[in-house]
Computed example of a mutant assay.
Amino acid sequence: MSLSQIDLNLLLVLDTVLSERSVVRAVQHLHVTPSAVSNSLARLRSLLGDPLVIRSGRGIVPTPHAASLAPALKRALSEL
């Protein structure tokens, strides 16, 4: 996978979902539709080969891979 294959908006969605620990709150924060967040996560899952988040009760839990990406992702987005 090349970095040129990744839309930076997908990374913003992932960062928000991981920070909020909720797709519903991510939707509200990003001002997009639930299907937009779902589609973004699906594209990232395909690109990264990982489920990224798992439903847990009323929220979500990051997979170990997503959890390991979260700090670098947050830093990179804040620097941009």
Rank of each mutant, 00 (worst) to 15 (best):
V37L: 06
V23A: 05
E79I: 01
E20H: 00
A36L: 13
L8W: 10
E79C: 02
R25Y: 05
P51A: 06
S35V: 08
A70S: 15
L48A: 04
V61L: 10
L12T: 12
L14R: 12
L41R: 08
I54T: 13
G59P: 02
Q5N: 15
T63K: 11
S56K: 14
L14H: 05
L12Y: 14
L47Y: 14
D15N: 12
V32W: 04
S19Q: 13
V53R: 04
P34I: 01
R55C: 07
P64R: 03
G57S: 11
V24P: 01
P64A: 07
R43G: 04
L69P: 06
R58F: 14
L12N: 10
R55E: 13
A36H: 13
L8D: 15
V23P: 00
L73T: 00
P51K: 03
I6D: 09
L47Q: 13
G49N: 06
Q28P: 02
V61P: 01
L52F: 12
A26F: 01
R45Y: 03
R75N: 02
S4G: 06
L10A: 03
T16Y: 03
V13A: 12
A42I: 00
S40W: 03
A76P: 03
V53T: 15
T16Q: 10
S4F: 12
L3E: 15
A76N: 06
D15H: 11
A70Q: 14
P71E: 03
A67S: 15
P71I: 06
Q28G: 00
S22G: 00
N9E: 15
L48G: 11
S4I: 10
A72V: 03
A72H: 14
S35H: 09
L44W: 03
L73F: 01
L10G: 05
P34Q: 06
S56E: 14
L3T: 11
H31M: 11
L14Q: 03
D15V: 00
V27E: 04
V23I: 15
R25A: 11
V27T: 02
H31Y: 12
R45W: 05
L11R: 08
V13H: 10
L11F: 08
I6S: 04
R45V: 08
S19K: 13
P62F: 01
R55V: 09
A42L: 03
D50A: 05
A66C: 07
D7G: 04
V24D: 15
M1L: 08
A26P: 05
R43S: 14
L10Q: 07
P71F: 08
L10I: 08
M1A: 14
L3Y: 11
L44I: 07
D50Y: 09
